[in-house]
Simulated assay, not measured.
Amino acid sequence: MLDSPAIDLPPPAPVAAATLHYGGVDQPPQALRDLLLARVEAAAPGSEITWATYYFRDPALADALIAARQRGVKVRLVLEGRARRGSVNGPTIERLKAGLGSDLRLHRSWLPGQHLHAKIYTFSGGPEPAAFIGSYNPSGGVDDPKLLRDIGDQDRGENLLVDFRDPDAVEALEAQAMRLWEGRFAFRFGKRANKAKRVGDFAFYYYPRLRTDVVERRLARLGPGDEVKAAVSHMDKGPFASQLVKAAERGARVELVVHDTRRRVSKGVVSELRDAGVEIRRYCDPDGYPMHAKFVIVDHKQVRTAWFGSLNYNFGSRVMNQEILARSADPGLVDAFDVRFDRLAEEAATRSCTGGKHVADAAMKAALP
């Protein structure tokens, strides 16, 4: 019997190390919520879902998690129990308590101002493990105009999630979500625990940590010919802004897109950066949708790196909060961040913040009863 002739099959398509997903005015409403919802609905019995997040108000997503538990998925969820706007999570907490029981846990720090601000969404134990981190809070379902104005429409505003499919990356992120769920925080101040968790082209940094200047150390190396692009929703006059000023003064090109409200990024820090030669624009949306993304791209000696996650560049995130920050040198992912930044910068350049009041704030006030 003759052997069958060999068949030349095309090589399998390479699987991206990580994929950038984003929400915004150019995307369908609830694009990021629907991404998570689809993963929850696809979770098979015997698999596990472990989430840690700050705001959670989406009833459909809550119901999907409860339904997953009922069909045999192990669902663990930890939420901030004392958010800055404490009423945000209230309705969802009651819903989830009834459906998840003790698998829902609330972070309530004894230290004033210390919050669970990380956003980690992991799916493991099934044929396609996945983990998502970024800036997105599933806070849809807000029907209070004052509350919506305060926290921003997370389903329509500029947000991002990075999707990891590498099993080692999923395992690392699930382990961190589990530590948050279990309430193990003191370990963060051990020297060993402050080492970055490295997986391939990625490194994960968990806050609080002994050394908070993860991005700042890279900025301190920059000079002529180097470049920084960053979308920053929250920033104060701290080490991050200071290193951006110094980098610009040394000859690096620095471009920023920041949130339009003065509470999140003050007029003083914007003026200081502009005086140093930083190209900084406020993102103003006429419908009040926030620029909530948090990512930094650094091109240093032709080596391009991106940082992203839940970390805000202010005192609370840097010193107090439970946060996650990731670093990547994956060319495809860095390029995706670059493309998204250019779009944000172009939008910001075509919209004006006038008279000390941003257009979005005026629009939201007009909608109030």
Results as ranks from 00 to 15, higher is better:
residue 65 L to N: 03
residue 279 E to C: 08
residue 27 Q to Y: 02
residue 358 H to T: 09
residue 2 L to G: 05
residue 16 A to Y: 04
residue 195 K to F: 05
residue 77 L to Q: 11
residue 257 V to H: 01
residue 27 Q to G: 01
residue 17 A to I: 01
residue 27 Q to L: 07
residue 214 V to H: 02
residue 253 R to L: 03
residue 195 K to G: 14
residue 328 S to F: 08
residue 191 K to F: 14
residue 89 N to V: 03
residue 368 L to Q: 13
residue 93 I to P: 09
residue 18 A to Q: 10
residue 13 A to C: 06
residue 360 A to Q: 11
residue 319 V to R: 15
residue 358 H to G: 06
residue 194 N to L: 05
residue 8 D to W: 07
residue 173 L to P: 06
residue 341 F to V: 04
residue 81 G to H: 11
residue 334 V to Q: 12
residue 327 R to T: 12
residue 364 M to L: 15
residue 100 L to Q: 04
residue 42 A to Q: 13
residue 212 T to E: 12
residue 219 L to G: 13
residue 298 V to N: 05
residue 315 F to Q: 14
residue 117 H to R: 07
residue 115 H to K: 08
residue 44 A to F: 00
residue 21 H to Y: 11
residue 300 H to T: 03
residue 348 A to I: 07
residue 39 R to L: 07
residue 81 G to I: 02
residue 341 F to W: 05
residue 195 K to L: 10
residue 199 V to L: 08
residue 86 G to T: 09
residue 149 R to S: 14
residue 150 D to K: 04
residue 356 G to Q: 08
residue 231 A to I: 07
residue 22 Y to E: 11
residue 277 G to Y: 01
residue 322 Q to P: 00
residue 187 F to S: 13
residue 51 W to A: 10
residue 350 T to A: 14
residue 364 M to N: 06
residue 88 V to N: 03
residue 201 D to P: 15
residue 98 A to Y: 00
residue 99 G to M: 03
residue 172 A to P: 11
residue 255 E to T: 02
residue 168 D to G: 00
residue 5 P to W: 05
residue 126 G to C: 01
residue 239 P to K: 06
residue 283 Y to M: 08
residue 291 M to H: 12
residue 57 R to F: 01
residue 160 L to K: 00
residue 208 P to G: 04
residue 358 H to M: 06
residue 81 G to C: 10
residue 261 T to A: 06
residue 311 L to Y: 04
residue 344 L to V: 10
residue 367 A to F: 00
residue 133 I to F: 04
residue 85 R to M: 09
residue 171 E to Q: 14
residue 124 S to M: 05
residue 144 D to E: 15
residue 200 G to T: 10
residue 137 N to H: 09
residue 161 L to A: 03
residue 1 M to L: 09
residue 82 R to G: 07
residue 171 E to S: 14
residue 258 V to I: 15
residue 32 L to S: 03
residue 122 T to G: 06
residue 106 L to A: 13
residue 129 P to M: 02
residue 225 G to K: 01
residue 352 S to I: 09
residue 112 P to I: 05
residue 174 E to Q: 15
residue 93 I to L: 07
residue 317 S to F: 04
residue 149 R to W: 05
residue 340 R to L: 12
residue 201 D to G: 09
residue 356 G to A: 07
residue 151 I to W: 02
residue 142 V to A: 11
residue 42 A to H: 08
residue 313 Y to G: 10
residue 39 R to S: 09
residue 224 P to E: 08
residue 143 D to G: 11
residue 291 M to S: 05
residue 2 L to C: 06
residue 199 V to P: 12
residue 15 V to S: 10
residue 5 P to G: 09
residue 184 R to I: 09
residue 21 H to I: 03
residue 42 A to W: 04
residue 229 K to H: 11
residue 156 R to I: 06
residue 232 V to A: 05
residue 214 V to R: 02
residue 367 A to T: 04
residue 326 A to L: 12
residue 79 L to C: 13
residue 339 V to Y: 09
residue 29 P to R: 08
residue 360 A to G: 15
residue 23 G to I: 06
residue 347 E to M: 10
residue 213 D to K: 08
residue 140 G to A: 14
residue 9 L to E: 10
residue 8 D to M: 11
residue 94 E to W: 00
residue 258 V to D: 07
residue 93 I to D: 08
residue 80 E to D: 15
residue 265 V to D: 02
residue 20 L to T: 07
residue 323 E to S: 12
residue 279 E to V: 14
residue 122 T to W: 03
residue 144 D to F: 02
residue 189 F to R: 14
residue 201 D to I: 00
residue 38 A to G: 13
residue 349 A to M: 14
residue 242 S to E: 15
